[in-house]
């Protein structure tokens, strides 16, 4: 299977070029809110779960407004899930202090922080995926540059993205060549893989050279100029302002607890 198929980057790209209220927002506003979102989610103490719940509204709202299929985002999250699981799984082993009980079940601190880590993973990764799918890599790169990311990095990002498909095709061709000539020999040795990777590197370097030649032939002077730059409007300001206020409120007050108290107060 090809890398591009496996990660369905092409699909992500299609989503990025759709039109929706989210897609029309200035990429800088979305990048800014997403960054603040991730930092806030990460800033909670390790045993926190309930205060994190209100943060779920941001990625879910973004995905819904951008009309991105939720299933697609879920599939993408599964790819990254093993990393979070591995990091989190250590906690229940070391931290066995009982913390709270859910019915007859006694939960240790380790399990609580494990759940907290998984929950943060879901929040941050879905927010990042929603950002990419709701903006498109290309507008995202341009937005990052205008936010102050050094141009070299922004360009690296765009070129990496543009040539991921070309290079993964190249890798697939090399692999096919190897498979056709290694029938029945079972797994390939490390040496074979070493030379394959080297081969791919050399081909990529040659290609990079040719691309640079092509750029220079059309007057490239170190700056990539774009056709249309989006102009931030009041919509972007309202989006960024409201999101930041709501996120800030959710960080300062535990909205889940407040809701519970308010509901309980209403009942009594």
């Amino acid at each position: 299977m090809r890398l591009a198929d496996w990660t369905e980057i092409g699909r992500m790209d299609e989503l990025g070029r759709m039109d929706s209220p989210v897609h029309r927002l200035d990429p800088r506003a979305k990048v800014l809110v997403s960054l603040v979102f991730i930092v806030l989610v990460m800033s909670f103490p390790r045993y926190e779960i309930s205060a994190l719940v209100p943060f779920l509204f941001y990625p879910v709202g973004l995905i819904a407004l951008a009309r991105i299929p939720m299933r697609h985002i879920m599939k993408k999250m599964l790819i990254a899930a093993p990393f979070a699981l591995l990091i989190g799984l250590v906690n229940p082993l070391f931290d066995r202090q009982p913390m709270c009980s859910v019915g007859p079940l006694e939960l240790s601190g380790g399990w609580v922080s494990f759940i907290s880590i998984l929950f943060r993973f879901v929040l941050t990764v879905s927010a990042a995926l929603a950002l990419v799918a709701g903006t498109g890599m290309y507008r995202l790169g341009a937005g990052l540059e205008r936010l102050g990311l050094p141009r070299v990095f922004a360009m690296q990002l765009l070129f990496l993205y543009r040539y991921l498909f070309v290079i993964s095709d190249e890798a697939a061709r090399i692999m096919r060549g190897v498979r056709l000539r290694s029938v029945g020999s079972g797994a390939l040795g490390l040496r074979v893989y070493g030379s394959l990777v080297g081969q791919l590197l050399l081909r990529s370097m040659d290609r990079a050279d040719r691309i640079y030649q092509a750029m220079v032939a059309r007057g490239f002077d170190g700056e990539i100029r774009l056709l249309q730059q989006s102009v931030p409007g009041w919509c972007d300001a309202v989006f960024a302002g409201c999101s930041l206020i709501l996120l800030g409120a959710a960080r300062v007050w535990n909205l889940s607890d407040l809701l519970g108290i308010w509901l309980a107060g209403g009942v009594s």
């Binding site: 890599m137 543009r162 750029m215 059309r218 007057g219 100029r225």
Partner: peptide
Amino acid sequence: RHAVGMVFQDSDDQLFMPTVAEDVAFGPLN
């Protein structure tokens, strides 16, 4: 380079921008 336009053998080397329109605009913008 403005007087001589060069078309490369592998189009993938020449089309490096994210959309066709951006790519065609690359030279004139420069």
